[in-house]
Design a protein around this nucleic acid. Structure first.
Lengths: 226, 226
DNA sequence: GCAAATATAATAGTGTTACTATCATTTATA
DNA sequence: TATAAATGATAGTAACACTATTATATTTGC
C-alpha cells in the first residue's frame, strides 16, 4: 500500500502550468512553500517575488513554472479537487448500497481534511484552509468563461457530477441533483469559513456538525421528493 | 407612497466611507458609475482613476469619498444587503402564517432582482449582477475579522438572522436555522452564478427554478426535522 | 571526461496600480 | 464680499506583475 501510494500523482491540466512543478525538486518546493505563504498571509499578499525568496531562489525562476499567481491558484485548486475526487472514489468504491454510499461521500466531502502522507510536498490541511479562505477566487474573475472553455475547472466539475450521480442513485426522481451537489460542495466550504470568521451565522460549532447538517439536508430533500 | 418612498435611504455604517456619497451630487454619481464600471469590466479591472474619469473628475476626488476600492465594494455590498432586508421586511410584514411568510421570504431572497425606482442613482439589477459575480470578495480577505469587528458586515448578518428567525417560526425544533439561512443566501448567489457560467453544474436553467429548488429544500429540511 | 544542452540564478527595466501630498480653482455660506 | 468648503489638476512614491537579458550551475549524451 505504502509503495503503491507513493507512485500516485494527481493529474493536472498542463495548461495551468508552464513547466510541471512535479517534474523537479524546485517545482515541488515552489508548490510546498506557495501553500505555506498563501495559508499564512492570504492570496492577496502572496507574490512570486516572495515565493522565489522563500525557496532560496528568485522571481524569474517562479515564472518558469507558472504564468502568474492566478494560474498558481488554479493549480492548487485543481490539485485539491482532484485529490478530493481520488479520496471520494477510494472510500466509496466498495459500497454497494446507494444510501450508504452517498452518506460516506458526504462525510468525505464535508469533514475537515487530514494530512495525506501519500503526497510528501503537499500539506493538505493547509491547502484545505486555503480552499476555505479563498475558495471562490479561482472562478470569480472576468476570464472565468474562457478559462472554463480551456478546461481549468474540470476537476471541480467532475466532482460535482460524481456527487450528483450518487444523489440520483438514491432517488432517480429528484430533479435537482446537480444543484444540490453544487450547493453541498460550495456550502460546505462556506460553513467552514463561517465557523472560523462568522460563528454567529452558523449552528455548526464543531466541524462534525457541518457534516451532520448536510447529511440531514440531503436526506430530507431526497425523502420528500420521492 | 411615491413621496414616502422617495425619502427612503438605506443606512450604511459610516466607517465604510470617508464622506457619505449620498450627501452630494458627485458622491451619487460615483456610486452610480462605480456600479456601471464594475458590472461592465469586473471588480479586478475597476480603478479609482477610471471611476474619476468616468464622472468627469479625477482620482483624487474619489479618494475624498472612499478610502480604497475594497471599501467601495463594502459600501455596495452593505447597500445591497440593506436593501434586501428592506424588501424582505416590506413584503413579509403583513403575513401572519409562518410558513407562508417563510415562503415569501425565500422568493424575495432568491428570485432575480427588479429595478427599484425608489433609489434613483442605483441600478439594482446591475448591483445584483455584481453581487452574483463578486459576492465573496467583500469577506474573503485577510482583514475579514477586523472588518467584522468594525461592523462592516452587519447588514448581511442581520439578514441571515432574520431568515433564521422565520425558519424557527416554522419549526422551533430545527437545530440548524442559522446554517440553513446562510446556506440559502450564499447558495442562491452561487446558483445564479452557475446558471450563467457553469450551466452543467445546476438544474436551474430558469431563475424561477432556483427559487423552487430552495423552497423545496427548506421545506424538506423542516418537515423532516420536526 | 568533455561538450552541448538545459535548468537555474541574478539583474535590470517597463507599465500599471494604489495610493499621498500639494496647490489651484470653483462653488456654497455667513 | 470674505471665508470656508468642495472639487479639480498635477506630481510623486512604493509595490506589483511582469519581460528580457545575461551569467552560472547542473545534467545528459557521447
Amino acid at each position: 500500500m505504502e509503495r503503491l501510494i507513493r507512485n500516485l500523482k494527481i493529474a493536472i491540466n498542463p495548461k495551468v502550468f508552464v513547466k510541471d512543478p512535479e517534474s523537479s525538486d524546485l517545482g515541488k518546493r515552489l508548490v510546498e512553500h506557495g501553500i505555506g505563504l498563501i495559508d499564512a498571509h492570504g492570496f492577496e499578499n502572496f507574490t512570486f517575488k516572495k515565493l522565489g525568496e522563500q525557496v532560496g531562489s528568485n522571481e524569474s525562476s517562479v515564472y518558469r513554472y507558472f504564468e502568474n499567481k492566478h494560474k498558481f491558484l488554479l493549480y492548487l485548486s485543481s490539485w485539491y479537487w482532484g485529490w478530493m475526487e481520488y479520496r471520494l472514489v477510494l472510500n466509496t468504491l466498495g459500497i454497494a448500497d446507494a444510501e450508504e454510499k452517498l452518506s460516506k461521500a458526504l462525510e468525505i466531502l464535508t469533514q475537515p481534511v487530514e494530512l495525506d502522507m501519500a503526497f510528501e510536498h503537499i500539506d493538505e490541511v493547509a491547502l484545505n484552509r486555503i480552499m476555505v479562505n479563498e475558495h471562490s477566487k479561482p472562478f470569480l474573475t472576468k476570464s472565468v468563461d474562457r478559462e472554463n472553455r480551456e478546461g481549468y475547472f474540470e476537476p471541480y466539475k467532475r466532482l460535482v457530477e460524481r456527487l450528483a450521480e450518487m444523489i440520483r442513485a438514491v432517488d432517480g426522481d429528484y430533479g435537482f441533483s446537480l444543484s444540490l451537489a453544487s450547493t453541498v460542495l460550495e456550502g460546505s466550504l462556506h460553513q467552514h469559513f463561517l465557523d472560523v470568521h462568522f460563528p454567529s451565522l452558523t449552528n455548526c460549532k464543531k466541524p462534525e456538525t457541518i457534516t451532520r447538517f448536510f447529511k440531514q439536508l440531503v436526506s430530507a430533500a431526497l425523502n420528500q421528493a420521492s
